[in-house]
Write a protein that binds this DNA or RNA. Structure first.
Length: 439
RNA sequence: GGGGGAGUGGUCUAAUGGUAGGACAGCAGACUGUAAAUCUGUGCAUUGGGGUUCGAAUCCCUACUCCCCCU
């Protein structure tokens, strides 16, 4: 099997990859160690939000900071945002296109979108003078943030827009992409960046429900030329169901040598489906937000039952002892180890699971009363920190008393589920097991 | 033994003669390039009995339970 790779600033990232959203420079409630342990290789930050807080002056300062923090390792790949977060993985900066849509189009509060750019009447609370936000602003700010992949400011096509509106948003998205390309190249030249030191630039394909305009948008963006392409707009309908036809269609509009970024996707099973269609970069707020909102993801593995899973954990817990005994030719330990292997083979194994089928997942609404006394871990077969250390009852309790550790434990688990699915799709060995996939 | 006070869903609490409402807990959900530790829906109650009244959680009588004070 051919594994696609993303090469940026001398680093390689195997695809597919799932990037949790760290909108404000933080995957909420997680520190960089937890991120790493959960198998996260990259995150998405947001240009609009970071420009507001903390602002690029601060990020620029961090771009050249001497690595004084205890854990910071000097690296060529470091940048303002990476030093600030002390995060060494892939960082994508989203343009703010979504916020344009969300704040102005969806919520209809102040602001105006013209070909020139976006006029914010409200701006961020801290930054009322923001005024107009142009594609050039967005890309310049993204350089200051210092991400690896920058994204063109685009004009979001709404789910139910008329063809006239679709045309407008597509034309504007193309116009803005052109201007972004020019500005990007200008900055590359100014900064004397080379193909080995520059970030990548992605454009976003808009066009809503219209195949015609999606096609037109993709073709025009390809003519301009970018390092990768994104799927813009909504990929799901009001019921949250993936538009498979459209996601397949758009993926096919982009030649396979380009990375294809399905922005905002999605449910784990939709990621698995989209991967099959050719999309290979994903980001979504669901695992983190759902975690905070007390909805936990599990694989539904028919092989798992509580008794056996418990046994596996008990054996595992005495793991070190058992193994040392094993080496000293104890038959008992030998048997225990065999048993562990059998059970683990059965559990830590989603290989036989059709990851594209929603029926193979389940939600745990952890705040429900029935979990108050449940001593099982959240996922019977889960290898995450939360499941290796805490019971459903305890996580339930933490949510009840509103302790923020609840968020952290929930988010850790959800992200681990997402990453296990991704790892299964790609056969990527998770870094936590000893292999670092970025060179 | 005497005096006083109080009893409203699982819990806390509104309604002082006029549609028993809210919060939390319960149950069922939503969230898709994060203005979201958020939001939605829903089940469940006037301590029992009697009386006054067109109408009672509310006023009266009584029983029960609890609390406080006195002895």
């Amino acid at each position: 099997m051919n594994i696609k790779e993303l090469k940026i600033k001398g680093k390689k990232y195997k695809l597919p990859i799932f990037l949790p959203d760290a909108t404000l420079g933080i995957v909420r409630s997680l520190d960089n160690r937890a991120l790493k342990e959960v198998g996260t290789r990259g995150v998405v930050v947001n240009t609009y939000h970071l420009n507001d807080t903390p602002g690029t002056d601060i990020l620029k300062k961090f771009a050249s900071v001497e690595t004084r923090s205890l854990q910071q390792r000097p690296s060529l790949c470091r940048s303002g945002i990476k030093n600030f977060m002390n995060f060494d993985g892939l960082v994508v900066s989203d343009s703010g296109g979504w916020q344009v849509f969300s704040l102005i189009k969806r919520h209809g509060e102040g602001g105006e979108i013209t070909d020139e750019g976006v006029k914010f009447n409200i701006g961020g609370e801290k930054n009322k003078q923001l005024g107009i936000f142009t594609p050039e602003d967005s890309i310049r700010i993204q350089f200051e943030i210092g991400a690896d992949i920058l994204i063109c400011l685009d004009d979001f096509t709404g789910a139910n827009d008329s063809e006239e509106k679709i045309k407008e948003s597509v034309k504007r998205t193309i116009l803005w992409a052109k201007r972004t390309r020019v500005e990007f190249d200008k900055i590359i030249k100014e900064k004397k960046l080379t193909d080995k030191t520059r970030p990548l630039l992605f454009a976003v394909i808009q066009g809503g429900w219209s195949r015609k305009w999606r096609k037109y948008c993709a073709e025009e963006l390809l003519k301009i030329g970018f390092d990768g392409y994104g799927y813009g707009g909504y990929m799901v309908n009001e019921k949250g169901e993936l538009d498979e036809e459209m996601s397949k269609y758009i993926a096919e509009l982009i030649p396979d040598e380009f990375p294809k970024f399905a922005l905002g996707v999605g449910k784990p099973w939709d990621i698995a489906r989209c991967y099959e269609f050719g999309w290979d970069i994903f980001d979504c707020v669901l695992p983190t937000r759902d975690g905070r909102h007390q909805r936990l993801y599990n694989f539904k593995n028919d092989n798992t039952n509580e008794a056996e899973a418990n046994e596996a954990r008990l054996i595992k817990r005495s793991d070190s002892g058992a193994l040392s005994l094993a080496s000293s030719e104890s038959h008992f330990a030998e048997a225990t180890r065999d048993k562990l292997e059998v059970i683990q083979g059965k559990f830590n194994n989603i290989k036989n699971l059709d990851l594209k089928n929603p029926d193979n997942y389940e939600f745990l609404y952890i705040s429900r009363g029935k979990f108050a006394t449940d001593s099982n871990p959240i996922g019977l077969d889960c290898d995450c920190f939360t499941c290796q250390n805490y019971s459903r009852a305890y996580v339930h309790h933490l949510f009840k008393i509103k302790d923020m550790l609840a968020h952290r434990l929930a988010v850790i688990h959800n992200l681990r589920v997402y990453n296990r699915a991704i790892e299964e799709l790609s056969f990527v060995t998770p870094p936590m097991l000893g292999t670092v996939d970025a060179e």
